[in-house]
Structure formats: structure tokens, C-alpha cells
């Protein structure tokens, strides 16, 4: 038995949406290096639709896979949908995570939420 599902390993080996968005209008960072996990999500939102998303992650295999999957789940979706993203949805989409790795999917949910909050803040400031 492998430590992770094939889905997790696929997203870990070939992370989707990896990198930086120079013209992001919503950025969220969660976690800290002391604990061994940091996720940074970049969102490009137009007309309340997430037209592009990228991530950078410092962390274990499941942290990288969770970020990758979370970005896939919100790409092209309305902001209102992205706000509903749960760690459970990320975990399920990855065909499950080991019990002690569930916090990685929580981190992904929090990173997306932080980026969306940043976007709302910027929008409010602009108005």
C-alpha cells in the first residue's frame, strides 16, 4: 500500500497551476515555515469569475497536491462558488488523504479563502 492515492501522487508529481500570477488581484498566504507548510494562492478575478489561479507551496506531498487540486476546483468558477470550497471537497477530489494529512486540505481551503478576502478588500478599497 502506498502512502498516498494515485490522485494525490499525480497532483504532487505534476502540480496544476503552479507558479506566480503577476497581475493577480487577490493573494492569500497561510501557514508558516516553522510548522513546515506554507501555501500562497494568486487569483485573477474578472466580473466575479476566477479567470486564472496559481499557487506556490512549501510543504509535504499532500500539501502540494492539496494546493494543486484546490486551484483546479475553483478555476473558471464564480467567486461565490470558490467561497463554498471546503477541505472535504479537496480531500474527496484527491481520493482521500491519510488522517494525519487532513490539515493540508484545510490549509488549501484557508489559502483560497484568504486570497478571496484579499480580493474583496482590494475591491472595497478601489471603490
Amino acid at each position: 500500500m502506498a502512502l498516498y492515492s494515485e490522485k494525490v501522487m499525480d497532483h504532487f508529481r505534476n502540480p496544476r497551476n503552479v507558479g506566480v500570477l503577476e497581475d493577480a488581484n487577490g493573494i492569500g498566504t497561510v501557514g508558516n515555515a516553522k510548522c513546515g507548510d506554507i501555501m500562497k494562492i494568486y487569483l485573477k478575478i474578472e466580473d466575479d469569475i476566477i479567470v486564472d489561479v496559481k499557487f506556490e507551496t512549501f510543504g509535504c506531498g499532500s500539501a502540494i497536491a492539496s494546493s494543486s487540486m484546490a486551484t483546479e476546483l475553483i478555476k473558471g468558477k464564480p467567486v461565490s462558488d470558490a467561497l463554498q470550497l471546503t477541505n472535504k471537497a479537496v480531500t474527496e477530489a484527491l481520493d482521500g488523504l491519510p488522517a494525519h494529512k487532513i490539515h493540508c486540505s484545510v490549509l488549501a481551503e484557508e489559502a483560497i479563502r484568504a486570497a478571496l478576502e484579499d480580493y474583496e478588500k482590494r475591491k472595497a478599497a478601489a471603490q
Binding site: 504532487f12 508529481r13 513546515g36 507548510d37 512549501f58 510543504g59 509535504c60 500539501a63 502540494i64
Partner: peptide, 14 residues
């Protein structure tokens, strides 16, 4: 510096 050990191990295993 700048990376985490488990992901390093998994990719070395690959």
C-alpha cells in the same frame, strides 16, 4: 533551505 523533506523523499523515490 526553502524546501520540505517529505516531498523531497517522495520525488527521490520516484
Amino acid at each position: 533551505e526553502g524546501i520540505e523533506g517529505e516531498s523531497l523523499l517522495l520525488l527521490l523515490d520516484d
